[in-house]
């Protein structure tokens, strides 16, 4: 659906994108993550045809974004971060204007406006003037605008900003249900959302792509991704020594807590050593109260990849 090759964007003196390449296949929901100023919005603006890259090439649905701009723009629904709306229009007026502008014709206009109003929970405010709406509702009008012509690809720049937790949950469900028929590229700072909704994550930092994989793979590959916590009744030096004999274990730290030892065991990336740990402890006859594998979150991945002091 999207093929970006070596995108570079330079603004006066600043290099916002330093040659990023990625693919998004049809039907994927891809999360675009990165700290503020990483180049997410720039990349999305290039994809939407709002501005050209300094160099590089993008095709969407087989059309070059710049030489066949209109063909591309017909196929995408783009929701910019600032959610631009005309405050003097009513919600319904605005949506039917946008629908017509994006090529929806005749009776379909009313039908589509009705549908997106229902999908985005705008039925009650559809005859209100946009200028009088709250931030959350405006955000939904922006989303409805992006979807109104039933585009193949939705590009959503920070769609959850300004929404309350209920609205975020509603939006998550909406995006998931849209993902069945549409390809979606969205950027957000709410990482649990991405873990729950996206099939793949692109992490961008300082104009470069740092990682591109499914949330599960990313967290598995993380350094402490496979840390195991064991709570054992045993003398701590012996426990530590016993655990270190297990192959593939890199580091063990043991703390005593009310007569029990809490061991944090770090293995090589992605390996699950719970069985071996259990056998080692059982062979010594020590009572074992807890054995859990700690899951790294996407937040850990994000911090590791984008933190200033990263190795």
């Amino acid at each position: 659906m999207i093929e970006a090759e070596d995108l570079v964007k330079r603004f006066a003196g600043v290099q916002a994108l330093r040659g990023i390449s990625f693919r998004v296949d049809k039907g994927e929901i891809v999360g675009f993550l990165g700290p503020n100023g990483a180049g997410k919005t720039t990349a999305m603006r290039i994809l939407s045809g709002y501005m050209p890259p300094t160099s590089g090439r993008v095709t969407i649905a087989g059309f070059n974004v710049f030489s066949h701009s209109l063909d591309v723009r017909r196929r995408i629904g783009y929701m910019p971060e600032s959610v631009p709306l005309y405050p003097e229009l009513r919600v319904r007026e605005f949506l039917s204007y946008r629908a017509q502008l994006k090529g929806v014709r005749g009776n379909m206009v009313r039908q589509r406006v009705l549908e997106v109003c229902q999908l985005c929970g705008l039925e009650d405010v559809s005859s209100k003037i946009i200028g009088t709406l709250s931030k959350g509702f405006r955000q939904r009008v922006g989303l409805a605008d992006a979807m109104v012509h039933d585009p193949e690809l939705l590009i959503l720049d920070e769609p959850t900003i300004g929404l309350d937790p209920n609205q975020i949950r509603h939006l998550r469900e909406l995006i998931r249900s849209l993902g069945r028929r549409h390809t979606i590229l969205l950027s957000t700072h709410i990482l649990p959302e991405v873990e729950m909704t996206c099939s793949r994550v692109l992490i961008i930092n300082k104009g470069r792509i740092e990682a591109s994989d499914s949330p599960e793979n990313l967290t598995r590959k993380l350094h402490n991704g496979g840390a195991v916590r064991a709570v054992v009744k045993a003398p701590s030096p012996e426990l530590s020594a016993a655990l270190k004999t297990i192959p593939h274990i890199e580091e063990v730290s043991v703390k005593e807590d009310a007569g029990w030892c809490v061991a944090e065991i770090f293995s090589r990336r992605g390996e699950d050593l719970r069985e071996a740990i259990h056998s080692a402890i059982a062979a010594k006859g020590w009572p074992l109260r807890e054995l859990t594998r700690q899951r790294a979150t996407l937040e850990d991945v994000f911090v590791e990849l984008t933190h200033e002091d990263k190795a």
């Binding site: 939407s48 209109l70 605008d145």
Partner: peptide, 14 residues
């Protein structure tokens, strides 16, 4: 100033 220009320029309009 309102930012609506971005919406206009990314719609299929010449």
């Amino acid at each position: 100033a309102q930012g609506t220009f971005e919406g206009l320029m990314t719609a299929p309009v010449r």
